[in-house]
């Protein structure tokens, strides 16, 4: 079980709800993935457009909704967005993300830490999206964050675990769940993250932008489970030389 704050989840796959071709397809993918934590975003209402009925079906799926602060460029903006999200969804759970640079969407570590400290004091369950920086992750943990969400690669890049060495340190040191977020482009990336000992992974683009998102959601679910099982089983140690799996006796020497 994955334990975050006061809740437990049987699935270690978190799903982002963006980029799906339709709300119906997103709901099917959520069901196929078995995930129990789904991220949402916030935007200014377009008065000349009808409101989406996004939430009613999601409320029936018994999932924890996790609003994010995407679009915030500073701690001040993120705190404002967090308060809006809390009121809109009536939840104090929050995926904190602050990325001022639109090209690479790298999280701002200083603003993220500042915002996290304030949001924890305001009673939020804070899950910060952050750089794969072991020092920063420790500081976020010490600030009271319920988990840390270091990136594997840039958001939506599908490049996999580019930060692998740093993730290993973060996982080794963490006393809160480590959720690898961003950049996981294939189920094998998710499995690799789980084999490292990540508590969970968050995937969006790789599922939503695939040709068959529902099938891909199922594939990621299996990969996450396989990776976790492998981690629990204990991976064999990599060796610099061959080690025989069969006996190397001289029974053919007489030929």
């Amino acid at each position: 079980m994955l334990h975050i704050a006061n809740k437990s989840f049987s699935s270690r796959l978190l799903l982002g709800s963006g980029k799906f071709a339709s709300p119906g397809l997103m709901q099917q993918a959520i069901q196929a993935s078995g995930c129990q934590l789904v991220t949402l975003a916030l935007k200014r209402l377009q008065l000349d457009q009808p409101q989406d009925d996004l939430l009613s079906p999601m409320r029936q799926m018994n999932i924890q909704l996790l609003p994010n602060t995407s679009g915030a460029k500073t701690a001040k903006e993120a705190i404002f967005a967090a308060q809006l999200a809390r009121d809109a969804l009536q939840t104090n759970w929050l995926k904190l993300e602050i990325h001022p640079d639109p090209r690479y969407l790298m999280p701002d570590p200083i603003e993220t830490l500042l915002a996290a400290e304030q949001l924890v004091k305001l009673g939020f369950v804070v899950l910060p999206y952050c750089s794969a920086d072991p020092v920063l992750c420790k500081r976020l943990e010490q600030a009271g964050c319920a988990a840390v969400m270091p990136l594997g690669a840039a958001i939506g890049s599908n490049q996999g675990l580019q930060t692998r060495a740093m993730l290993e340190i973060i996982i080794e040191q963490a006393t809160v769940p480590v959720i690898i977020d961003a950049g996981l482009g294939a189920p094998s990336h998710a499995a690799a993250a789980m084999e490292l000992g990540a508590s969970a992974v968050l995937v969006n683009t790789a599922i939503a932008a695939s040709q068959y998102p529902v099938a891909m959601a199922g594939a990621f679910a299996q990969a996450v489970n396989a990776g976790r099982m492998a981690y629990n089983a204990g991976l064999a140690t990599a060796q610099p030389h061959a080690t025989a799996s069969s006996p190397l006796t001289d029974f053919l020497a007489a030929l």
């Binding site: 963006g18 980029k19 949402l40 935007k43 996004l54 994010n68």
Partner: peptide, 10 residues
Amino acid sequence: VQLFQIVTGG
């Protein structure tokens, strides 16, 4: 007055 709504996002 500013109005905001929940939308899909990752």
